[in-house]
Simulated scan of single mutants.
Amino acid sequence: MFKKFRFLGLAAALVLVIALAACGGGGSEEGSDSDSGDSGSSDGGDSSGVELGESELTVPYVSWAGAIARTPLVKQVLEEVGYTVETKQVDAGSMWTSVANDDSSFMTASWLPATHQSYWDQYQNDVEEVSVFVDKAPLGMTVPSYMDVSSIEDLKGNKELGEATDWTITGIDPGAGVMQNTQTALEEYGLENWELQSSSEGAMLSELQTRIENEEPIIVPGWKPHWMFEDMDLKMLEDSKEVYGGEGDRISMVAHKSFKEDSPAAYEILKRMGEDYGTDIEQQLMVEINNGADAADVASQFLEDNPDLLKKWTEGIGE
């Protein structure tokens, strides 16, 4: 019996010693961590404050040239630091809805304030704009430069042009904001005879190229940056009523409001990418994809060719 109590006494003493050592050691380690943190912040390499958080991310995107180009780039940068990223192609309405409902992590193809105004009005309490890809992305009715029209007003009552195009504006997917703007333009400019035809971006571009090859008239909703303005001689019609937003929308990343807390490292990376990404990078990626390269391969090559950017976007972040 005595031996049992003596054993328990020794055990209690040992626990007390360990506890005291831990308290003493904690103070020492805290000082060491503080020194290390000061050193880390001086060279920008401290990774202790940025955690991955939720590491499985879902990113919806629309089948527009810019989104097809930039989404794989964002995916690969996030995977570089340990995230698993699933991308899925959807229409514009589903893209906004899934992010607002927190079914998806963030989107890379928000056009604000004009093109996606209706979506923003509906979901602004549930989402936030994280960073901007392109500051000014003009949109408008677009025609081949050989056509003898310069403004949207020139379409009103233009019987010759109307008959040559079947009074049709060749559009893209119906959920796109630029389609909503174009429908509004028909109403604002009194173009009662004209009809906006839905299709897809690919179908619209194919029709545009065919018409240009035959020097035939065609009107489409266009936007920049886009490779079509590099490969084809096009012009946007003047929009005096600014139905399409004047100088242009900003293309940005929009996430659910919980995203910063759920995946802090990803949030930080998206903000950093927004500081450097712009029209020049977007145009470069899109042109290469249009020339036949795979979008994921183009993104990989870009990161390989720009290691300083990759380092800047991911420095201090990791598993």
Rank of each mutant, 00 (worst) to 15 (best):
S131Y: 10
E56R: 13
R250W: 05
L10V: 09
S36C: 08
K4L: 06
Q117K: 12
E79M: 11
S34L: 14
S206Y: 05
L270H: 00
G177I: 07
S206G: 13
E86L: 08
Q89H: 08
Q283A: 07
E54W: 03
A65P: 01
K271Q: 05
A12T: 05
E242L: 08
E79I: 09
M286C: 09
S32V: 14
L16T: 00
N306Q: 10
V99D: 00
A12R: 03
L285M: 06
G278S: 06
A255D: 01
K4Y: 05
G140W: 10
S47R: 03
K75W: 01
L309H: 06
N158P: 02
E129A: 15
G175C: 00
M232C: 09
D294I: 01
E80S: 14
L303Y: 02
Q124G: 05
A21F: 07
P307L: 13
I269A: 04
G246S: 03
K156L: 04
K311Y: 10
L10M: 08
I219F: 04
Q89E: 14
E187F: 08
K257L: 01
W223P: 00
G44P: 00
M236H: 01
G93T: 10
E315C: 05
E29W: 15
E129R: 14
Y83V: 04
T184N: 12
Y83A: 12
I218M: 03
L191K: 07
A22F: 05
E192H: 11
D135R: 11
E128W: 07
E129T: 15
D102G: 09
L205Q: 03
A265K: 02
T58A: 13
K257A: 02
G25E: 07
A293K: 10
L155R: 05
V90Y: 10
A69R: 01
D126P: 09
G245P: 01
N158G: 07
W223D: 09
L309S: 08
G26H: 13
F2N: 12
S110D: 09
L191I: 12
D276N: 12
W194V: 14
M236A: 01
Q197N: 14
A12F: 09
A19W: 04
E80H: 14
G175E: 07
S47Q: 05
T108D: 05
D154P: 06
V132M: 05
V81N: 11
S42G: 10
L303P: 01
D135A: 14
M228A: 15
S39A: 12
F229I: 01
